[in-house]
């Protein structure tokens, strides 16, 4: 096991940030911690990177205890905090050089590891880090976290505030890094990114809702789910909420995701109901559940 977390709890004054969290991450696995803001993701990362003490429970990273062997962990992991934490007044190259030096290595030595990422920011290597765009900053931060060839990589919300194209590129990079046998623990509030992980833990209010592969999590969704659309989205949601057999309704892009209370769902009946509410262009189709649906269901 690369990361073992057993019954970790942590409270700040009167907020319970983490409650009895346990999970294991295998070597070379890409493990995602998926949850909304304030779910406790950053606290968990800080405990695992030896920056905070847990109130209860134990955790090990690469076999080292996060409390007693913290020095070894600090030498061998890469950490990218949620907030951009590089030196804004240093250039791209100087930042990378600095982090290489303090980890006792050089850019050349581990260049092959960061090459794919670094070539994209290399044209800007003389630019100050503070003047980079959001996506560029994250790529640079990833390079800095990787420069010493860490065994475990902790990425706390690496794609928050990054445009969709850069986000996609970023995840492709993570996939490639994974092939180099680096364990990656990544957190994100974006459900669509969850599907790219090997396994995910859904977390809310400091509690883990479920841990499994993204496919299994989706399969576990208990009910058939329907895409419903009509000419007026807002009215549609209100009408559905007022429908007597409703189980849940969530907006999802151009559709709403609807589930029914009954075992036998009758699409015609629903259509008639919606037409009676003066909605037109009504379409109802069966669809598959996404991680977001699962999360909403579990978080209910």
């Amino acid at each position: 096991m690369s990361i073992c977390v057993a019954n970790i709890s942590k409270s700040y004054k009167n907020v319970k940030a983490l409650q009895d969290i346990s999970f294991n991450v295998k070597v070379g696995e890409l493990f995602g911690i998926i949850g909304p803001d304030g779910a406790g993701k950053t606290t968990l990362f800080r405990i695992l990177t030896t920056l905070l003490f847990a109130d209860n429970g134990r955790a090990t990273v690469s076999g080292w205890d996060v409390v007693s062997d913290y020095k070894n962990i600090r030498k061998s992991v890469g950490y990218m905090p949620g907030r951009f934490s590089l030196y804004q007044d240093l250039t791209v190259e100087e930042n990378l050089q600095f982090f290489a030096t303090i980890f006792g290595t050089t850019i050349e030595e581990n260049y092959d590891l960061i090459k794919d990422i670094y070539v994209q920011i290399e044209p800007f290597k003389d630019r100050r880090a503070g003047k980079l765009s959001g996506g560029m900053k994250q790529k640079l931060a990833l390079c800095c976290a990787l420069i010493h060839k860490p065994k475990v990589l902790f990425l706390d919300e690496p794609t928050t505030g990054v445009d969709p194209v850069s986000r996609k590129e970023f995840w492709e990079m993570l996939k490639r890094l994974q092939q180099k046998n680096i364990t990656i623990l990544v957190s994100t509030p974006y459900m669509d990114e969850a599907a790219l992980c090997d396994r995910i833990a859904l977390i809310q209010d400091g509690k883990i809702l479920e841990i499994d592969t993204p496919e299994a999590i989706v399969k576990h969704y208990p009910k058939p789910i329907y895409n419903v659309s009509a000419n007026n989205m807002y009215k549609l949601i209100n009408s559905l909420n007022a429908y007597q057999y409703i189980h849940s309704v969530y907006p999802f892009g151009e559709f709403v995701h609807y589930t029914d209370k009954r075992a036998e769902f009758n699409a015609v009946e629903l259509k008639l109901y919606l037409e009676s509410k003066n909605l037109s262009n009504i379409r109802i189709e069966k669809t598959v559940a996404t991680i977001e649906d699962t999360f909403m269901e579990l978080a209910k």
Partner: peptide
């Protein structure tokens, strides 16, 4: 600026 966080998680 949060850079202390990275410095701490370093050797």
């Amino acid at each position: 600026l949060g850079t202390m966080e990275i410095l701490l998680v370093s050797p």
